[in-house]
Design a protein around this nucleic acid. Structure first.
Lengths: 183, 183
DNA sequence: AGTGTCAGAGAACGATCGTTCTCTGCCCTC
DNA sequence: GAGGGCAGAGAACGATCGTTCTCTGACACT
């Protein structure tokens, strides 16, 4: 197993465990067991739990935004492309192991005590905001709606996590459609 | 110091610490030091950290909803009463020690491993949803908007926490006003 | 083949946690 | 005034955590 594969296995295992049970509820030895990578190697690649977590979040940020963009840009453009974001949220919320937004969860758990986590979470949310702003601008809509549109998505993530239902995505889509229809 | 005062001091101290730094980042000994209540008494009143946390959340739920209702119902009725919710959020977000919604944070940290926490958080969010539904109905608006209106508020809470700015409350209010104007 | 290098397994370490126990001193009752 | 129960302070306990160290065995090279 070379360095690249060890990294992948570590990030896969750590991300699933951290996301599924919370960060402080997972010990480094559980990451070792789930990944099959020895503790020694783990600490060579990621010198602390915090750095492992940040690496997980950064990879997740990339994958999440890529998947979202692929979905949105596979359909028609304009306003429908904005609304497709909420359709994608519905699919995400429906995944069996969905447990909310990993960034919101991480920020709530460690944002106050781990500055690196706070920075990473802010970067992710900022990137999402910028992406939505781009879609809205491409649809020729007023930039004033971007804020509420993002809030609908953020609210849907937490509501879906807490209620255990994907339905908030539908409600967010309805709200977004109304906001975009009003002129 | 009688039992009632010990409870108040414990809940005050624990709530501030848990909310400000995260739950697992705070030890029971810090709660003892901040409250001035001995460890023995603490465990007589709340036999475990989880029960102390749930008691904090339940009291916070009551106080939070009471403060919100007092604010909303101190102004005019109708649609403006719905919008007043977002004005209140702005004031809340502007408090110096604001760190997001304690229920969302607690759920993210412990929802997956502590069922009592999950139940308490769901109850709080459900109560907030019902309260908003009541305001919307009293304003003579369609019940269909309740979902998006709640999502705007939830999204504003997390966005304000992560960005460290109260501005999301303004954006949520704008979005809500548009949703209520559209018919 | 013999030797040096490295990786893995897992013990070890020091810290901290939630929780309980011990000891001491005070207050109330007779 | 003597004795008993109770509360507070803080040590103690067992578990677990993040992180490091030790030991052993396998592989690479001359």
């Amino acid at each position: 197993m070379d360095r690249a594969e060890a990294e992948v296995r570590l990030l896969d295992a750590a991300e699933e465990l951290f996301y599924g049970r919370g960060i402080q509820a997972v010990g480094m030895d559980q990451v070792r067991a789930a990944s099959g990578v020895s503790l020694k190697r783990l600490y060579q690649l990621y010198p602390s739990k915090s750095e492992l977590l940040v690496a997980c979040l950064e990879r997740r940020d990339l994958r999440w935004r890529t998947r979202l963009a692929e979905y949105a840009e596979s359909g028609p453009g304009g306003v429908e492309r904005v609304l497709a974001v909420y359709d994608w949220l519905y699919e995400w919320f429906s995944e069996p192991d969905f447990r909310g937004c990993a960034f919101i969860n991480s920020f709530g758990e460690l944002g106050a005590v781990d500055p690196a986590v706070a920075v990473t979470v802010r970067a992710h949310k900022s990137a999402f905001h910028d992406y939505m702003a781009g879609l809205v601008a491409a649809a020729g809509e007023s930039g004033q709606t971007v804020g509420p549109l993002v809030l609908l998505a953020e609210g849907a993530m937490t509501a879906a996590a807490i209620s255990g239902s994907p339905e908030p995505a539908r409600q967010a889509r309805q709200g977004a459609a109304q906001l975009l229809a009003a002129r």
